[in-house]
């Protein structure tokens, strides 16, 4: 490689950078790149804060409008949207510091923590569905877990996005139930190898090939996860009797201990009479 190659590469790189001179933002560094655009860390000169700046092709301008409709604690808030001199569009949003879900799972979080995250994702999805928005591309790379445990679902889909194969429903037309499929796939992805069968069954029901066999909506899936969390039977799995018995024992362990203590006291008193 000679000098002219490196100069050329540098020029190409600089030319690809967005021209932000007409905006209040100052580019810092690239933090992510996907098929639909590039995300940069930038500084808002006016407010003196760091933001994430997503630069998209002008055809994707609808994405910012979609996200702006979704004001929810688990959805990254949009601060501003606009156009660049080269006709590309941008939107500024909260810069989330933390880990992508797939990286977060590398830290081996507890099952309870995994379920907390999937609940937050499901709540964001349920909220978006009530606003008529579907995600279309829910996957670990689109979920961020902040340093204080906050969860954000990002990259809300637009028509051009068809989803990521492992998380995409085999449906001809994507709708809410396609998001339910992706949520199930995300749950399955998040479960450790030793996950309880009930949770695997919940993921399996959400990922049924027939959309009508899936949960009707995100709250129904979340309700099944909640049932699991409090020790109740889940809708997705008809458990064997021995499993039901074990679950009952686990759920009522304290009461069983107290009853056993009572029986122990009675036996003790009964036999003490004959000593």
């Amino acid at each position: 490689m000679d000098v002219s190659d490196s100069v050329l590469r540098h020029l190409r790189h600089v030319a690809a950078l967005p021209d932000l001179t007409s905006t209040r933002y100052e580019l810092e560094s690239e933090i992510g790149r996907g098929g639909m655009g590039v995300v940069y860390a930038a500084r808002d000169r006016q407010l003196g804060r760091r933001v994430a700046l997503k630069i998209l092709d002008s055809a994707m301008a609808g994405e910012a409008r979609i996200m702006a409709q979704l004001e929810h604690p688990a959805i990254v808030p949009i601060y501003e949207a606009g156009a660049l001199p080269d006709d590309r569009v941008f939107y500024a949003m909260k810069l989330v510091t933390g880990a992508r879900l797939d990286h977060f799972l590398g830290g081996s979080p507890s099952l309870a923590e995994r379920l907390r995250v999937i609940r937050r994702v499901g709540e964001a999805l349920a909220f978006a569905h009530t606003r008529g928005v579907i995600h279309r591309d829910l996957k670990p790379q689109n979920v961020m877990v902040g340093e204080f445990g906050e969860v954000y679902v990002m990259d809300w889909g637009v028509d051009a996005v068809a989803g990521t194969p492992a998380f995409r429903a085999p449906d001809a037309r994507l709708d809410r139930r396609s998001d339910i499929y992706a949520l199930g796939a995300l749950l399955r992805f998040m479960l450790p190898a030793s996950a309880p069968l009930a949770l695997s069954a919940i993921a399996g029901k959400a990922m049924q090939a027939d959309p009508c066999a899936r949960y009707p909506d995100a709250p129904a899936l979340l309700a099944d996860i909640e049932r699991f969390a409090v020790g109740l039977a889940v809708e997705a799995w008809s458990e064997p009797w021995w499993h039901r018995l074990r679950r009952f024992g686990a759920r009522n362990a304290l009461l069983l201990w107290l009853l056993a203590a009572y029986a122990g006291v009675r036996f003790l008193l009964f036999f003490l009479r004959y000593l």
Partner: peptide, 8 residues
């Protein structure tokens, strides 16, 4: 037994 029944 009264103690344990009370606890229950």
């Amino acid at each position: 037994p009264g103690f344990v029944v009370g606890a229950i």
